[in-house]
């Protein structure tokens, strides 16, 4: 599984999204109500732990992390920097 698929799998399972037809890699997880505000932190904890990276406050300010694809891009960037 690539990075995007791993994040997608986690979000789908952890937030009990299942096979909702409106869910995809480019949907805004927060605006569309798939993930509530507390979930944002949980996603960051997951990716930090799972991929062994550190998301800084600067990353959050500089890069949008509202969709699965955006989150995957940040993770890939951080992994490349390691």
């Amino acid at each position: 599984m690539n990075v995007l698929e791993q994040i997608e799998g986690y979000v789908q399972e952890h937030f009990e999204i299942g096979d909702d037809p409106d869910f995809n890699e480019d949907v805004n997880l927060f605006d569309e109500g798939f993930v509530d505000s507390l979930g944002a932190t949980e996603i960051v904890f997951f990716i930090e732990d799972h991929f062994g990276i550190q998301i800084t406050q600067k990353d959050i300010i500089l890069y949008p992390m509202n969709t699965i694809r955006e989150i995957a891009q940040v993770v890939e960037r951080k992994m490349a920097e390691k």
Partner: peptide
Amino acid sequence: IPEILFKYPHKVMDLVAE
């Protein structure tokens, strides 16, 4: 402090320290 940061309480406190 950018609004978006408040979604991530740990990161806001990082900023307070930094």
